[in-house]
Amino acid sequence: MNQCFGAEFQKSDKKLNELYKQIEARLKNDADTKKLLVQAQRDWGKFRDAECSFQTAGAAGGSMMPMLIAQCMDGLTQSRAKDFEGYLKCQEGDMSCPVPAAN
């Protein structure tokens, strides 16, 4: 089970990284916003790790711990990927969206 959940997390993480690269490409001409993206993603990674440690504290040291951590990380990563997908669908002129529309 640990391997299965670990593999699911790796799949979600790969998708997130692909979406991140697409967002970075759209921000190539906006160094300030790109810097904010990099910082936000670093902070999000720290949050994800801390949140999953907290959520799985009851299983600390147990054999289910790796599975529970992978499950938590997968869920949060999928949620972040949905956010990124939303950023990539921004409409031209949407000032509430940090990512410019595709050309």
Score class of each variant (00 low, 15 high):
A7E: 12
A7I: 02
E8F: 07
E8G: 04
E8K: 14
F9Q: 07
Q10W: 04
Q10N: 14
Q10I: 09
Q10F: 05
S12R: 08
D13I: 00
D13P: 00
K14D: 09
K14G: 01
K14P: 00
K14Q: 11
K15R: 15
K15I: 15
L16D: 02
L16C: 01
L16F: 09
L16V: 04
N17K: 13
N17S: 13
N17F: 03
E18I: 08
Y20Q: 13
Y20T: 14
K21E: 09
Q22N: 07
I23A: 06
E24L: 11
E24K: 15
E24F: 05
E24Y: 03
E24P: 05
A25V: 04
R26C: 02
R26D: 02
R26Y: 03
R26K: 10
L27P: 03
L27W: 04
L27D: 01
K28H: 13
K28Q: 15
K28W: 08
N29V: 08
N29A: 15
D30G: 02
A31S: 15
A31R: 10
D32P: 03
D32G: 08
T33S: 07
K34L: 15
K34S: 10
K35G: 13
K35E: 14
K35P: 04
L36C: 02
L37S: 04
L37I: 07
L37K: 08
L37Q: 09
L37W: 02
V38C: 01
V38I: 14
Q39P: 00
A40I: 03
A40C: 04
Q41H: 04
Q41S: 06
R42Y: 01
R42K: 12
W44F: 11
W44K: 04
W44E: 02
G45W: 00
G45F: 07
G45P: 00
K46H: 06
K46I: 09
K46C: 00
K46N: 10
F47N: 01
F47W: 10
F47S: 02
R48C: 01
D49V: 11
D49H: 12
A50M: 05
A50H: 03
E51A: 10
E51R: 11
C52I: 02
C52R: 05
S53L: 06
S53Y: 00
S53R: 10
F54W: 11
F54G: 08
Q55L: 12
Q55G: 01
T56I: 00
T56K: 01
A57N: 05
G58T: 06
G58A: 09
A59G: 01
A59K: 07
A60H: 03
A60M: 06
G62Q: 13
G62S: 15
G62C: 11
G62M: 14
S63E: 13
M64A: 14
